[in-house]
Amino acid sequence: MRIKTKHFEIASVLVGLALAANLAHDLATNPRWAGDNGPGVGKLPKQIVAGYLDTAYQAGGAAEAEKLYFTPKTKDLSPAAVDRQDGPAVTHHIRKVLGEGMVVMVYHCVGGERTGQAAEIVDIFRTWNGRVAERIQAAAQPVERCEPTKPRKNPLESSVM
C-alpha cells in the first residue's frame, strides 16, 4: 500500500497546524505567568532588581517591595538590610550593576535615613519568573555620606585620532 503524494501533503499540513495550535495554546496559558500580574513579569533581571530597589527605598516601601517582588519561597540571607526596613525615603545611588543570566549584582550607596549610618553595599540578586528568588548582601561598608558618582570621562575622547 502506497500513500499518495496528495494525501501525504494534506496530512503534513494538518500535523503542522496542530503543532502550531498547541504551541500557541501553551504560550497563552503558560502556568509560570498565567494570572501573575506582578511588576517584574516579562522584564529582564536588571529591570526587576531596579524596580525592587526603587520601591524598597521609597517612604515606607519595604513591605510593599517584598509583597510585589518576592515569592513565598524567596531566600533572603540579609533580612535586616536597609531595604527590608520600613521608614522614611532613603537616598540611594547606584554605582555599578552587573548581570549575567538571572543573577544581578548591584554596588550602591544607601543613605542613613533609616539606620543613622550611610553605607556602600554590594547586593546579589537571583531572579526567577519576574520575581526575586534569592538575595544576598555580600558586603556593607559604613561611610559618612552618600554622594552621586561623578560621570567618568571617556579616555578615548581625548586621544588624538
Rank of each mutant, 00 (worst) to 15 (best):
M1E: 00
I3D: 11
I3Q: 11
T5L: 10
T5E: 06
H7I: 04
H7Y: 10
E9W: 12
E9N: 10
A11D: 06
A11F: 13
L14W: 10
G16V: 03
G16W: 07
L17F: 15
A18M: 12
A20F: 03
N22K: 09
A24T: 01
H25P: 02
H25K: 15
D26V: 00
L27W: 13
P31N: 10
P31G: 13
P31K: 12
R32G: 08
W33D: 13
W33I: 14
A34I: 09
D36V: 00
N37R: 09
G38E: 01
G42I: 01
K43C: 10
K43R: 15
K43M: 15
L44S: 03
P45V: 00
Q47G: 03
I48W: 04
I48Y: 04
A50N: 13
A50R: 08
A50Y: 00
Y52V: 02
L53R: 04
L53H: 07
D54C: 09
A56R: 00
Y57Q: 14
A59D: 13
G60M: 07
G61Q: 06
A62Y: 05
A63C: 04
E64L: 05
E66P: 05
K67M: 02
K67D: 00
Y69N: 02
Y69Q: 01
T71R: 12
P72D: 00
K73C: 02
K73I: 01
K75W: 07
K75S: 10
D76E: 11
L77H: 05
L77R: 09
P79H: 14
A80L: 09
A80N: 12
A81K: 05
A81I: 00
V82D: 15
V82F: 06
D83G: 07
D86C: 10
A89P: 05
A89K: 11
V90R: 11
V90I: 12
T91I: 13
H93A: 09
H93T: 03
H93C: 14
H93P: 07
I94V: 15
R95P: 00
L98V: 00
L98P: 02
G99F: 01
E100D: 11
E100I: 02
E100N: 15
G101F: 08
V104H: 15
V104E: 05
V106Q: 14
V106Y: 11
Y107N: 13
Y107R: 05
Y107S: 07
G116S: 08
A118G: 09
I121D: 11
I121Q: 12
I121Y: 07
I124F: 09
N129Q: 15
V132A: 11
A133P: 01
A133F: 01
E134Y: 01
I136Y: 14
I136E: 13
Q137L: 12
A138K: 12
A139Q: 15
A139C: 04
P142Q: 06
V143E: 03
E147R: 10
P148R: 05
P148D: 01
T149C: 07
T149H: 05
T149Q: 10
K150E: 04
K150S: 09
P151V: 00
R152H: 04
N154T: 04
E157W: 08
S158N: 10
S158T: 10
S158E: 14
S159M: 15
M161L: 14
M161A: 07
